[in-house]
């Protein structure tokens, strides 16, 4: 089957077949990353702009490496160096980049919906590398790839996602993608961090972390961002760690072969203890490794997709 999407704006738009194709493509491209010469000519002559309006080290680096391993020319534009600080509108920035004829724009933005805005106004493909609290599709896809590698399947698995669900684009993208693949998704977090109606998207909501983790196949911890959420949503990080942190005792409630995931960067001792993060059930670095393969797959598929479809 062929891939029909011009843009990757979220996992909400992807079908089960799309996701399987992306995972299979990533699986076959992954091998390139362990070659001595880590480069294939697949996207030679293509120009990819990484347009990052929000600080990001790993996602941007991962996309950049993915593009370079496929021989594309990748250019990084970050908010600190683009003219956004001088008040240029997103539309003007988009038009200016458009004029330089890129093939793919990879965009990170703090405003939910910003990549959709861009995709409506630009001719090239747009890949959402995280928009506000909305979606982060490449993260969800690399999560699925990692789970599939460790578990050999996706269907029927139970995943517990714990943290600030309200402000998490990872949680939303995972939820859409995982439910499509037949997985059971449990969401858990403080009462101040659970968005209304999330169960209508197929999640089961838990308030007690022990219940959420019990017999889970996968435990995914979300990063608590102190600077964003610390003000009124939590009394202290100490209490957060006690109620919603993943420590060895709590992990023992999950299935014995459960894996531990985290989109990073870690707040050690807050949402995850170092014993767990560095323990044998942790697949956190596998996620990072798979991130490059998933992004290679997305760039490859989008570059070959039909231009008429969005």
């Amino acid at each position: 089957m062929s891939f029909r999407h011009k843009h990757i704006l979220g996992t909400e738009q992807l079908s089960k077949e799309d996701i399987e194709l992306i995972l299979d493509t990533a699986e076959s491209l992954r091998e390139i990353n362990s070659r001595e010469i880590k480069k294939v000519p697949t996207l030679r002559g293509k120009t990819i702009v990484n347009l990052f309006y929000e600080a990001s080290t790993r996602t941007r680096t991962s996309f950049e490496i993915a593009g370079k391993r496929l021989s594309a020319d990748t250019i990084n534009m970050t908010a600190s160096t683009s003219s956004v600080t001088k008040g240029e509108t997103l539309e003007d920035t988009a038009k200016n980049i458009q004029a330089m004829k890129p093939d793919i724009i990879v965009m990170r933005h703090s405003a939910s919906g910003a990549p959709h805005y861009l995709a409506e106004r630009i001719h090239c493909s747009v890949i959402n590398a995280g928009d506000g609290a909305h979606e982060h599709p490449s993260q969800a896809l690399l999560d699925l790839l990692t789970i599939r590698q460790h578990k050999g399947r996706l269907e029927g698995l139970t995943v517990a996602i714990v943290g600030d669900i309200t402000h998490s684009r990872v949680a939303r993208s995972d939820l859409y993608a995982m439910t499509k693949m037949g997985m059971k998704v449990r969401l858990c977090g403080p009462g101040t961090m659970m968005p209304p109606g999330i169960e209508r998207l197929g999640a089961e909501v838990f308030t007690d972390m022990d219940d959420a983790v019990r017999d889970a196949d996968v435990v995914m911890m979300l990063r608590i961002q102190l600077e964003r959420q610390g003000k009124t949503l939590l009394p202290t990080l100490r209490e957060y760690a006690r109620l919603y942190g993943l420590n060895p005792a709590r992990l023992a409630l999950a299935k014995p072969d459960a894996i531990v995931m985290h989109p990073g960067p870690l707040n050690r001792g807050v949402e995850i203890s170092s014993y767990v993060a560095d323990g044998k059930q942790s697949v956190i670095l596998d996620q990072v490794e798979n991130g490059v393969a998933i992004r290679m797959a997305l760039l490859y598929l989008v570059a070959g997709g039909e231009a008429s479809e969005s």
Partner: peptide, 13 residues
């Protein structure tokens, strides 16, 4: 508005 649509869109309610 605070509600399901805001949850889906990732916008503050």
């Amino acid at each position: 508005n605070y509600g399901f649509v805001a949850t889906e869109l990732g916008l503050k309610g």
